[in-house]
């Protein structure tokens, strides 16, 4: 691996101008900056989830348990807690792997393999977004719905109304739980969706030979960074929303 980043270069040369002191191209550095700011947004969302939950628990209210809410699996009525979301997580991780394989193939200027792995990444992303659509339509309020952003939806099978010691209905609670679910998974799902679109555009360019002519596949690396970030965020959402 004779990469620019592993070369020992005198600090005076490195910082002396005329080159990037980080041995990083402009586009990739901007992608990293964007990812850091986006990670702060997601960090803020997850911390606000923690805030709502800790405040509720401190008050003595119960907080819905995700393994009791997310028990459905497409095509069956069996009680399968967390299995479908685990499958979704696995699919997203695998699509991250196919993306890193596409980047690796790009380093060998292997256009066929880049096309293959990038196409698989797009398919994985589409499966994930589709699963999220299914999840939303299943869990949103309805005859079969389990969570709601409304306080008094009579159609709910499981009503996680939170009451204080005197039996008075609390304002924050299952609705907050549902709102966080739709906001966090929705915001993440939008990232996945835009990632799929971006990956698809890059896939078209790869097939058209744009990067073959340019001499390097760094563009695949850049969208790869974004795609891995989407996977990274989901790992945290999975833990802090579904597991804990």
């Amino acid at each position: 691996m004779s990469a620019e980043a592993t070369k020992a270069i005198e600090p005076k040369v490195l910082w002396g101008g005329g080159r990037s002191p980080f041995s990083l191209s402009y586009g990739k550095m901007m992608m990293w900056f964007f990812l850091v700011s986006d990670a702060l947004t997601f960090g803020g969302l997850l911390v606000s989830l923690g805030f709502a939950r800790h405040a509720a628990v401190t008050k003595g209210w119960s907080w819905p348990q995700s393994d009791q809410v997310f028990t459905h699996f497409p095509g069956t009525h069996a009680n399968l807690p967390l299995l479908y979301v685990a499958l979704m997580t696995f699919i997203l991780i695998i699509s991250s792997v196919t993306m890193v394989l596409a980047v690796e193939a790009g380093h060998r200027m292997d256009k066929k393999k880049v096309t293959f792995w990038l196409a698989l990444t797009v398919v994985g992303g589409l499966i994930f977004v589709g699963s999220q659509v299914w999840e939303w339509s299943t869990y949103i309020a309805g005859p079969d719905g389990d969570i709601t952003t409304w306080a008094d939806n009579a159609t709910l099978k499981q009503n996680f109304f939170l009451t204080d010691a005197s039996g008075k209905l609390g304002a924050a609670g299952p609705q907050a739980y549902a709102m966080f679910f739709f906001f966090i998974t929705g915001f993440h799902g939008f990232h996945v969706f835009s990632g799929v679109v971006i990956n698809f555009i890059i896939l078209m360019n790869v097939m058209g030979g744009t990067y073959e002519r340019r001499g390097h596949y760094e563009m695949v690396e850049k969208v790869g960074l974004y795609w891995h970030f989407v996977d990274l965020v989901w790992v945290f959402v999975f833990t802090f929303y579904y597991l804990l």
Binding site: S2, E4, S20, S25, V100, H107, R108, H216
Partner: peptide, 24 residues
């Protein structure tokens, strides 16, 4: 400034690629 090839192990050989893939 994009004339300098900054990419990480850009253009590695088949053997190096096999090693990286194994790691992946």
């Amino acid at each position: 400034d994009d004339i300098i090839e900054y990419s990480l192990h850009a253009h590695h050989s088949e053997e190096e690629g096999a090693k990286i893939r194994k790691n992946i």
